[in-house]
Amino acid sequence: MNLRPPFRLLFASIVIVFLSVGCHSGDKSPDKSPTWNTVQDSTDRVLTIQGGLKGPESVQYDSEQDLFFISNFNGDAAADSNGFISRAQPDGTIDSLKFITGTTAHPLHGPRGMTIKGDTLFVADQKGIHGFNRHSGTHISFIDFTDFEPGFLNDIALGPQGQLYVTDSRKPQLYQISGKTVSIAVDSLSHVNNGIMLDEANQRLVMAAWEDGKTFLTWQPSSNTLDSAGTGLGGNYDGIEPISKNSFIVTSQADSTLQLIKNGSGQIFVNVPGKPADIGVDTKRNRVAVPYIALNRVDIWQLPNQE
């Protein structure tokens, strides 16, 4: 095809536009900024992370490295030694599917909730808490919980004084880790709990109720005080993340929603396509990453602006 110079330029421009559309990663900006009062659904999600994920249960955002860690059950969450943690970029690219796999001495079985303290990524697992270097993935430590006969160690959070706190979604207990020493911080809670977060503004921990629990329990380590942060809609709450001084977001597996809990009451702001597990918040882009164990993927939505 013999094209004159002006037509060659036009033809080249058309090709460039076509290729740029064809190679789009799937990351899209919402048509307009969402609000807490407008309920989003699957058509509003920004992007999806998938391709090799096996039962993703939890997402932890690393703000310094600007990336996500995704824990994978890879089948049963029991002691099968085949769990792994993936590393993904904010655009949805998985740059290391099995970034962390544990060791022969301390394998990952069904990794779930995670938190970061310094350069260490702490991961809750079937028999205890693993520590990994968040840069290299190297195994650093393992804190054994078997003497406590845990039911299902679920989520982990950093407390106000630097201790780690771990929930058990089959026992109404809250565990504390100081150094390498494990103890029961709170025994005989009113119900079992799943997710846990630090409410830094109020120097307390907030727990997401599981099974029959409807109340988001709070515990203040300095005064050993239990209280309530309100109730939500649905039930079987899993992931929980702070948003502002008086609000946080949670996932409900009872009705497959993301909810804002503000001043003690809940409202739905996203309807999701599966049972949402332990979420992570991209604080740089104000986005929430939602894993689904059964769907083998993580969806990401834009969060509304803070109120």
Rank of each mutant, 00 (worst) to 15 (best):
251 T>M: 08
17 V>F: 13
102 G>S: 07
121 L>Y: 08
170 R>Q: 12
278 D>F: 11
147 D>I: 13
10 L>N: 03
189 L>E: 02
239 G>C: 11
235 G>P: 14
182 V>T: 10
19 L>M: 15
276 P>S: 07
261 I>Q: 03
305 N>D: 14
284 K>S: 15
301 W>M: 10
149 E>T: 14
58 S>M: 11
59 V>A: 06
291 P>E: 04
52 G>Q: 02
198 L>C: 01
255 D>L: 06
305 N>H: 15
210 W>C: 05
148 F>D: 01
215 T>H: 04
56 P>H: 03
46 V>R: 14
80 D>V: 14
154 N>W: 06
266 G>D: 07
57 E>F: 09
174 L>Y: 02
246 N>V: 09
188 S>Q: 04
189 L>H: 11
307 E>A: 06
180 K>L: 01
203 Q>M: 11
251 T>G: 08
69 F>T: 07
57 E>D: 15
275 K>A: 14
206 V>C: 00
221 P>H: 00
98 K>P: 11
166 V>G: 08
254 A>G: 00
240 I>V: 15
203 Q>E: 13
279 I>L: 14
194 N>S: 07
193 N>Q: 06
191 H>Y: 12
169 S>M: 14
200 E>Q: 14
170 R>D: 08
149 E>A: 13
137 G>L: 02
171 K>P: 03
172 P>N: 02
280 G>A: 06
76 D>C: 15
158 L>A: 08
117 K>W: 00
189 L>M: 15
50 Q>M: 02
196 I>E: 10
249 I>K: 11
147 D>F: 10
17 V>Y: 02
68 F>D: 08
187 D>M: 02
302 Q>A: 04
66 D>C: 06
51 G>V: 04
40 Q>A: 05
153 L>V: 01
73 F>T: 09
158 L>T: 12
141 S>A: 08
252 S>A: 13
221 P>Q: 01
58 S>A: 13
305 N>S: 15
169 S>H: 09
162 G>F: 04
84 F>C: 10
182 V>H: 04
299 D>C: 06
53 L>H: 00
35 T>N: 06
135 H>F: 15
85 I>E: 04
34 P>E: 00
269 F>S: 12
203 Q>G: 05
136 S>M: 04
101 T>D: 11
237 Y>M: 07
33 S>H: 09
8 R>W: 01
115 T>A: 09
97 L>H: 03
125 D>Q: 11
141 S>D: 09
178 S>I: 05
291 P>A: 03
132 F>K: 11
229 A>P: 12
237 Y>T: 14
151 G>L: 04
1 M>Y: 01
43 T>D: 04
183 S>F: 03
13 S>V: 04
141 S>T: 15
14 I>H: 13
264 G>F: 01
151 G>R: 02
154 N>D: 10
76 D>A: 15
141 S>V: 14
139 H>R: 02
219 W>I: 09
236 N>A: 00
302 Q>G: 00
67 L>K: 08
182 V>A: 04
184 I>H: 00
159 G>Q: 08
79 A>E: 14
178 S>T: 12
129 I>L: 03
84 F>I: 09
59 V>T: 12
224 N>K: 14
67 L>E: 03
82 N>M: 12
109 H>S: 06
119 D>P: 08
238 D>I: 07
158 L>N: 06
87 R>D: 02
199 D>N: 15
231 T>V: 14
33 S>Y: 10
40 Q>H: 03
